[in-house]
Design a protein around this nucleic acid. Structure first.
Lengths: 231, 231
DNA sequence: CGTGCTACCTACCGGTCGGTAGGTCGGGGT
DNA sequence: ACCCCGACCTACCGACCGGTAGGTAGCACG
């Protein structure tokens, strides 16, 4: 039975440390979490923890890289081959919102919150991985606009509007709120990329994406308690 | 000359402390900033600083309340009387974006970043002040949808989409980037609240806000360097 | 002149921070 | 039997943390 019997393999143990540390840092913040606490949560002493990592900053860097891996696996890789740019953006928004709302991978939340904690090369490296996502979105917005599928918009503004809507969710979403994460995803997708209903309104045939008029008065009620939190 | 000669009046001094502390906390984060550093930046000793404030957490609370005052003065109060809900949202988005991009009032950035740092009553108090803004936005979205000025959208999703676009800006905006803050504000307003061009497309006369079709292919180029930063 | 008050100061508190030196201990290789 | 190595441990480092006790200099008021 060679190397079978669930001996928490080297890399396995390291990943477990990253996940435990990520849970704590996500709750208390990077500066607000001590190595003592992280070690205890890993059922180790501090010196034992330092056997696996180099220092606190490198631990954060490893967590963020792990988070970017998870993001690329669960979002980017699943949508990057969608041919239609608007469908690509729709699917991407959906996956990204659900990545933030579902609790798996606190690492992603840390990437979002601790955007200015790392410095120097580590900071530059993570920023570069983020930038690839921005480029991907800008490219999609650019294509969609060029094909007349959305209103003409600066791709950068489109990309960062998309990101703001999607990523800000981590600041206010509560799983037991009035809206489920599915409803939020559907609602935001529908708000930014409304379905095409009418064909061309004037003489142009190929250009068809216009936001359709609402059925007169339809909004639910007034604001009311949202079940969510603060901005 | 009674009480004239620029003796930095009690409240004046306190405000100066809040602003200095806010600058530091905005740069280094709340947990990452020591009272020693804040005191030094105020050209005082730590004990001298503690003559003016009660403790570190109360200092953060005071900064956030000051930030909310500034926000209400510079954004809310200037737009809340605009009758048309869409114009109200447009103006509000503009003012809010510029509040974030212009460097004045680091206090506002602290409110955005340290959204989970306070606890207990202080946290509840600030959250309540934030909630009033969410309610204001939800009300505006609700009215706009009811009047058929925008696509029907859940007011909560509208409000938090608005907030995400606007507030996420603090994470990536650089004053020397390709886009100026004015361009970002204009672009985002135009993206979420496009101008009305065509009248009713079908039989309904009052319902007119449909997103207008782009002039065929018009998008600038591909993505290119955005001049900004990470998501 | 004395009193009271604000606005600070020096000096210090116990505790915790990130990090390390050096030892122990069990299992695999030979 | 021996050794070695990785995976931990105890014990400790100097620096710094948030916060305070107690003193004092300057000014206003009587």
């Amino acid at each position: 039975m060679t190397t079978s019997g669930r001996k928490p393999d080297e890399g396995e143990r390291y990943k477990a440390i990253l996940e435990t540390a990520a849970r704590l840092i996500c709750e208390r913040g990077y500066e607000g979490t001590s190595m003592q606490e992280i070690a205890a949560a890993c059922r180790m002493t501090k010196a034992g923890l330092y056997h696996h990592i180099q220092n606190k900053e490198q631990l954060l860097f490893a967590i963020m890289n792990y988070g970017m891996d998870l993001f690329e696996e669960q979002v980017l890789s699943r949508v990057q081959d969608i041919a239609d740019p608007v469908d690509r953006l729709r699917a991407c928004m959906r996956h990204n919102i659900l990545l933030v709302t579902r609790g798996w991978s606190k690492e992603v939340i840390i990437i979002l919150h601790e955007h200015a904690t790392l410095t120097g090369e580590a900071r530059a490296f993570i920023d570069n991985r983020k930038k690839r996502y921005v480029d991907f979105l800008e490219e999609a917005f650019s294509q969609a606009a060029q094909q007349g599928r959305i209103r003409p918009v600066d791709p950068t503004i489109g990309a960062f509007s998309f990101l703001g809507m999607v990523l800000w969710v981590y600041k206010w979403f509560k799983p037991d709120g009035r809206l489920t994460d599915e409803q939020i995803a559907d609602g935001m997708v529908d708000l930014l990329f409304p379905p095409i209903v009418a064909a061309a309104v004037d003489g142009q045939p190929g250009v068809s994406s216009l936001r359709v008029v609402p059925r007169a008065a339809s909004g639910s009620g007034t604001s009311s308690g949202s079940g969510t939190e603060e901005p």
